Amino acid sequence: FALSVPWAVEKGIAKPSSKTKFSPNEPCTRGQVLTYIYRWNGSPKSSIKNPFKDVKPSDSFYNAALWAYEKGLFKGSTLNGNAPCTRGDAIEFLWKYANSYPMNPADNFTDVPRTSKYHSAVSWAYWMRIATGTTQTTFEPDSDCTKAQIVTFIYNLEHSHFMDWLKMSLESARQSE
Results as ranks from 00 to 15, higher is better:
Ala8Gln: 14
Ala8Trp: 15
Glu10Asp: 14
Ala14Gly: 02
Ala14Arg: 01
Ser17Lys: 04
Ser17Tyr: 11
Ser18His: 05
Lys19Arg: 04
Lys19Asp: 04
Lys21Asp: 14
Ser23Glu: 05
Pro24Gly: 15
Pro24Cys: 15
Asn25Trp: 12
Asn25Pro: 02
Thr29Ser: 15
Gly31Cys: 13
Gln32Asp: 14
Ile37Tyr: 13
Arg39Gln: 13
Trp40Gly: 03
Asn41Glu: 15
Pro44Glu: 13
Lys45Thr: 13
Ile48Tyr: 06
Lys49Glu: 12
Lys49Arg: 14
Asn50Val: 01
Pro51Gly: 15
Lys56Leu: 09
Pro57Lys: 15
Ser58Pro: 09
Asp59Pro: 10
Phe61Lys: 08
Phe61Asn: 06
Ala65Pro: 14
Leu66Arg: 10
Leu66Asp: 09
Ala68Val: 06
Ala68Gln: 15
Lys71Val: 07
Phe74Met: 09
Thr78Arg: 11
Thr78Met: 05
Leu79Asn: 00
Ala83Lys: 13
Arg87Ile: 02
Gly88Met: 03
Ile91Leu: 10
Leu94Ser: 08
Lys96Ser: 13
Tyr97Asp: 07
Ala98Ile: 01
Asn99Pro: 00
Asn99Gln: 03
Ser100Phe: 13
Met103Asp: 08
Asn104Val: 12
Pro105Ser: 09
Phe109Val: 10
Phe109Thr: 12
Thr110Met: 10
Ser116Leu: 07
Ser120Met: 14
Ala121Lys: 07
Ser123Lys: 01
Ala125Met: 09
Ile130Arg: 02
Thr132Leu: 05
Gly133Pro: 08
Phe139Pro: 04
Glu140Phe: 02
Pro141Ala: 02
Asp144Ile: 03
Cys145Ala: 10
Thr146Glu: 03
Lys147Tyr: 07
Gln149Met: 06
Ile154Asp: 03
His159Gly: 04
His161Gly: 00
Asp164Gly: 01
Trp165Val: 08
Leu166Met: 05
Glu171Gly: 09
Ala173Asp: 12
Gln175Trp: 08
Gln175Ala: 11
Glu177Trp: 14
